[in-house]
Design a protein around this nucleic acid. Structure first.
Lengths: 206, 206
DNA sequence: TCCTTTTCATAGCGATCACTATAAAACAAA
DNA sequence: TTTGTTTTATAGTGATCGCTATGAAAAGGA
């Protein structure tokens, strides 16, 4: 095997025999599909094609590997969805496009169904992990809320609109869509739910 | 200890020293809080106050105990929510009351947050269990759809309303509310999401 | 009283869990 | 080459997993 990570400064000892990023990608897929508790080190080492000592040397332990895999997942989602939120001309269109894109991503054929973050540790014994994940999920709401507030400031929404409640509503729907996708819902069905949710958008005038 | 289950026909051997229903109730609580994979037999025997052989003699194995606990949970929910759906004067009010009642139940202080069914095995390695649960969750949609269809038949909804999509939407919201509750959402916040979702109800005239 | 039946608590089964001690292998520096 | 550093694969560690063998205890029937 050859060293594949050319970006790191050449160190002294024997070079790593596997691609750290590729291994992390494979670990992410397994965690995404099976969850934290449902995934064993054996599952991981088989998917990553490395032995346990290599895993522990490169990633610390199971929990840190999980968090790093989740961070990688979230970074990918932020890269896809962030510009979509920012660049939409109105808050309404931003949310609409976000939901449609989520419907597409959650039902992709070549990836685990649903959202790795939303479906993580929803009922699990790892309380410390659970609270960390709840916090990350709360960040999603914050992003929606910020975009909606921009729309309110631009007078797109009725004065006095409860932005927090609206952000909560669409976050709730995103979580529900993730679970629906995991239960086998088609992209079409997810899009229909997204479109129904857009009917709840506050009317311009009242 | 005394025999507590007086309804069963007296059998020959030594009488059971614990209340089967009470033990099942305690098992339900643990599974509800920690999920299937996050709960060990030790967790269960401690909560149920029995030893492993008693658990296996009375309930079969871990999976069957789980399914029986889940059935008990669902029966309770059906008893509370079923009449609410049936007796509401219109489909719209039926869904509205259901969502409000779900908000209350999901944020009860003396029970695990969220819904045992909706949060079960959302990402887990037990694929057979996962598909069973997906099926049970699909039954919730069926119940909503049936009620909405009644409303359509009673001309409460515009002709040509996509009842399936509407049922999917409110099921999606229910799943999302369960996840929100598990992440710490208040009853007030859940109610707000429910009310927002009711704005998506089809207009009477168009 | 004695036999049969069922449940009980103790103790422990093999398998798997997350994780690691060890030493050979593969590199850079001396 | 020699030395030092890091990664490698093998082969485990103790702990916990779901589950059960065993024999005493507690009941009814003979």
């Amino acid at each position: 095997m050859k060293r594949t990570d050319a970006s790191a400064p050449r160190l002294r000892g024997r070079p790593r025999g596997f691609d750290r990023e590729a291994a992390l990608e494979r670990a992410m897929e397994v965690f995404w599909r099976q969850g934290y508790e449902g995934t064993s080190i054996t599952d991981l080492t088989r998917a990553m094609r490395i032995n346990p000592p290599s895993l522990y040397a490169a990633f610390g332990d199971k929990e840190r590997l999980y968090l790093e895999a989740l961070e990688r997942y979230q970074q990918g989602r932020r890269d896809e969805l962030g510009p979509l939120l920012d660049q939409a001309p109105t808050a309404r269109q931003a949310i609409e496009r976000l939901l449609h894109e989520a419907a597409r991503l959650y039902a992709q054929p070549d990836a685990p169904r649903g959202c790795m973050l939303m479906l993580s540790c929803t009922a699990c014994a790892e309380t410390s992990l659970q609270s960390q994940l709840a916090k990350r999920r709360a960040d999603v709401k914050k992003a929606l809320k910020a975009r909606i507030e921009r729309g309110l400031a631009a007078s797109e929404l009725p004065r006095g609109t409860d932005v927090d409640a609206l952000a909560d509503f669409y976050t709730t729907l995103l979580k529900g869509m993730a679970l629906q996708a995991r239960d086998g819902a088609s992209r079409r069905s997810l899009v229909a739910a997204a479109e129904a949710a857009m009917r709840a958008w506050p009317a311009r005038r009242r």
